[in-house]
Design a protein around this nucleic acid. Sequence first.
DNA 1: ACATTGACCCGTT
DNA 2: GAACGGGCCAATG
Length: 115
Amino acid sequence: MSTYEAIYAVVRQIPEGKVATYGQVAELANLPRQARLVGYALFRVDAASDVPWHRVINAKGEISESPFRQGGDYLQRSRLEQEGIEFNQEGKINLREYRWQPDQGLGSDGEKTRC
DNA sequence: ACATTGACCCGTT
DNA sequence: GAACGGGCCAATG
């Protein structure tokens, strides 16, 4: 069980039609402030892996991927669109809508115990 | 074993 | 609101 394995495990928990940011995945993987490692891990992810790496995006809601990535840049976006995720003119995703929240069913009130 | 790299996030200016 | 820099860790050659 390597550190990357933990990251893959978290990414694998991302439901379909939802996206998670690197920082979020990092925290879920027990790696606080190590969003970088998440990105590095995904970079080293094997295409044959069942890791939905395409569901992981940066905090800006933009798709980040290296130009050397197999296929091209449109691949990830195409996959996300298949999941039902929409992009705006900027090619970004509405994190407020598609951000994966593990505790989605927190409470009907949503945010009440604030301050 | 050392140095380099690599798909980021956050706080400050 | 945008731009800039710093910090972190692991894998690779």
